[in-house]
Design a protein around this nucleic acid. Structure first.
Lengths: 240, 240
DNA sequence: CGGAAATTTGAATATTGTCAATTATTGTGG
DNA sequence: CCACAATAATTGACAATATTCAAATTTCCG
């Protein structure tokens, strides 16, 4: 279920993928689906369902990759690995999120950060579907805008923040995406967090210790926290 | 500067196929512009033209900001300033680029990184225009996708790179956007570069010295370089 | 030409990364 | 169900790297 309350007033068209310049269309693409409900059901029929274990490779990425996905359960990670072996997690995709909608994202390696259930689509086909289906187009556009907002937030997190601030920012995101009251699941391993926030696992661990000492987080167990959200937000945004 | 719309030159709205989801529509939105050419001319008439000096504030940003812009000449920067005073340049917008298309971007402060010429639009209006104008819609969609790709690249640059790699990655971007052969203009001050790549100006300066010593860049003057592009790309991607 | 601002350079400091060792956690087979 | 092995996470000591602060230089404009 998409949770973003993106009230952005921009057009659906902004989020359109590549519309087909040659005006091609599939015979069996319905252009008259009446509502979100119906669109969802149709997509379910179109998509391949995949269940993957933690750390399984979902897509190897690269220029020839044509599939995109939607997370139904669990968390997926999009990873880029340098020639010198450094790893960067560019994004975590949570339930409801699409990934691989843009070509640049399809070039990344996609893996399961935890046990996950996915829908798999052909990107071109999904795009053509959205060309003649306003409901889907709107959904994808929203996804795209949300991606952009998240990427900006990620940039800010990586740019000029201390380890404590980075971890706080990351946990705030987890809270938004997966939080239940003040309880926050942390489904991914520490190395994934480290490669997302641009630190070593050791530094992430120390940042956790720091936040715990300040009573901003409380470890129920390694993958489940209780957080003081106001304090977390304060720290993430730069206040002490 | 003239922001007038020569009303007599406006095509009428007959032929608008796609209506606004909320049923709203402007009388004077032309929905039958035949090609990019004509769309461009129409946009020029719609937009307010602004000429700004280096460091001038283009938009203060915030939730109430409703304008978006297109850079015609020069470079604009989008800036976020923390409560603790740290500055992050999230994006540079070059000639041809739009900025402020998404709500998250409209919240940022926009400034001129150098002397610049801009077109100014009402975001909502531009959106409605694109709703019934496929050419514009396509153009904005492309802009949006390009933004996302750039943001991803920015994330990678900030994540796990040395100062030398960051600067090389930044200069590669400048080359793509402004390069003429192996000559690359560097219109913005060092502090802007520093706040984009997440380093201090001093470290940026040292990284410049490093690249110069390796003969990867040659300072024609402070704002004009000659670069060895293959070497630059090699370094930016993590090699040596 | 002169003064202000931007940039570069230098030395000391602080922070994070690295490497090694220890402690938890998880999953498996008995 | 428990013990144990394998993996993941934490902690500590040290080294490497970027920041900070200060000073010198260059560039930009009037």
């Amino acid at each position: 279920m998409p949770r973003s309350s993106d009230t952005d007033a921009l057009p659906d068209a902004v989020g359109c993928l590549c519309s087909d310049p040659r005006g091609r269309r599939d015979e069996d693409l319905p252009c008259d689906l009446r509502d979100e409900e119906e669109t969802q059901r149709f997509l379910l029929r179109q998509a391949g369902r995949r269940v993957v274990a933690a750390d399984a490779v979902i897509s190897k990425g690269g220029v020839s990759e044509r599939r995109c996905f939607r997370v139904m359960e669990g968390v997926a990670r999009l990873v880029l690995i340098d020639v010198d072996g450094r790893r960067q997690v560019t994004r975590f995709a949570f339930p409801g999120d699409y990934f691989g909608l843009s070509r640049s994202e399809r070039e990344l390696v996609a893996e399961a950060a935890s046990h996950a259930v996915l829908l798999e689509f052909d990107a071109g086909r999904l795009q053509r579907l959205s060309d003649c289906n306003p409901h889907l187009a709107r959904q994808l556009a929203t996804a795209m805008r949300s991606n952009l907002g998240q990427a900006m937030e990620h940039v800010v997190l990586l740019g000029r923040k201390t380890p404590r601030q980075r971890l706080a920012g990351f946990l705030r995101m987890l809270h938004r995406q997966l939080g239940l009251g003040d309880v926050v699941p942390v489904p991914m391993p520490r190395t994934d967090i480290a490669d997302y926030v641009g630190l070593t696992p050791e530094t992430v661990s120390r940042a956790f210790a720091d936040l715990r000492q300040r009573k901003v987080v409380d470890h129920i167990d390694r993958h489940l926290l209780r957080v003081d959200l106001p304090a977390l937000v304060m720290i993430a945004d730069g206040g002490a």
